[in-house]
Design a protein around this nucleic acid. Structure first.
Length: 283
DNA sequence: ATGGGGGCCTGCCGGC
DNA sequence: TGCCGGCAGGCCCCCA
């Protein structure tokens, strides 16, 4: 479910509820999700103070004063919900255990952090903070799309010589880390690139446009609090609003939004994934 | 080596 | 109203 902007939204929502606070209690309600939880995870979390809440691609990184980092991936349907704080939040997350609540953290400031994941494609792990870049799931990630290491020369180099369609290449987290199906579709539309085009044959000026498109669509989505289809929620349970900003995703058969463009948005399936694009603007 | 497809899970929606 | 098939934002792994 969540791509980079959604994970960033969750990160920002968790910060006030967790940062510089101790984990008073940790409860796991099953043995694991996509992978088994690390050995004694609840006990190893209990008593730790949260020293940082970061993000790498679609991974949340909760730094602890135990020199360990709690790595969280939300998979397709994962949510991190904050409850128990007397905040101004109008949609108070329920304190009644819900179906698929798998992990609950009780913080010293009064907040309860609940990890809920219906499809259980998410994961949690604990790893030495000093060695994070060697974690198997983090080691091969490409550059952060909003960071300085992601630029036209870097992307051109990553795509050079590749026969795979550019759509598939952008979903490859070693090329650029954090994009998913939605934002790849949106970025390719903004850049005017056919998703089926071979990665290695994109001219330099299009690469340049693609870098800018990726950056702008992600930044706007973060600004809007992430997008949501069926089940993305911010930490307060509210929906994100960027889905109202989609130009192509989920708009099969609807008119292209480019002024003067007579085309309608097409949907094709590649590698089992829906791809939405404008046949006129993305030629 | 690289690309494509299957599988992991559950929920939801549309169609009959 | 109820059931069933299809589909879903991620990612790993196997096979060709």
């Amino acid at each position: 479910m969540p791509e980079l902007p959604e994970v960033e939204t969750v990160r920002r929502g968790l910060s006030p509820a967790m940062l510089e606070q101790h984990i008073l209690a940790a409860e796991t309600r099953r043995d694991g999700l996509r992978f088994p939880f690390p050995v004694n995870m609840a006990a190893r979390l209990t008593g730790s103070r949260v020293t940082a809440i970061g993000r790498r691609a679609k991974y949340l990184l909760v730094g602890l004063d135990s020199a360990q980092t709690l790595i969280v991936h939300l998979g397709m349907s994962g949510r991190m919900l904050v409850s128990g704080l007397p905040t101004a939040s109008f949609v108070a997350a329920s304190t009644v255990p819900q179906k698929h609540d798998h992990v609950v953290l009780t913080m010293s400031g009064g907040a309860r952090i609940t990890f809920n994941d219906a499809r259980r494609f998410g994961m949690m792990d604990l790893w030495p903070s000093a060695d994070l870049s060697r974690h198997p799931l983090l080691a091969s990630l490409g550059p952060e799309p909003l960071g300085n290491d992601f630029n036209a020369p870097a992307l051109a180099s990553a795509l050079a010589g590749r026969q795979t369609p550019v759509k598939a290449a952008l979903l490859d987290q070693t090329v650029v880390a954090g994009l998913g199906n939605i934002y790849v579709c949106e970025a390719l539309f903004r850049a005017g690139i056919d998703p089926r085009q071979k990665s290695g044959s994109i001219p330099p000026d299009r690469i340049d446009a693609l870098v800018q498109a990726i950056r702008s669509v992600l930044a706007e989505a973060i600004e809007a609090g992430g997008s949501s289809l069926r089940d993305h929620r911010q930490t307060n349970g509210e929906l994100g609003y960027f889905q109202h900003g989609f130009a192509v995703y989920g708009r099969e058969g609807e008119p292209c939004l480019t002024p003067g463009c007579p085309a309608t948005i097409l949907r094709i399936v590649r590698a089992g994934r829906s791809t939405f694009f404008c046949p006129d603007c993305q030629a």
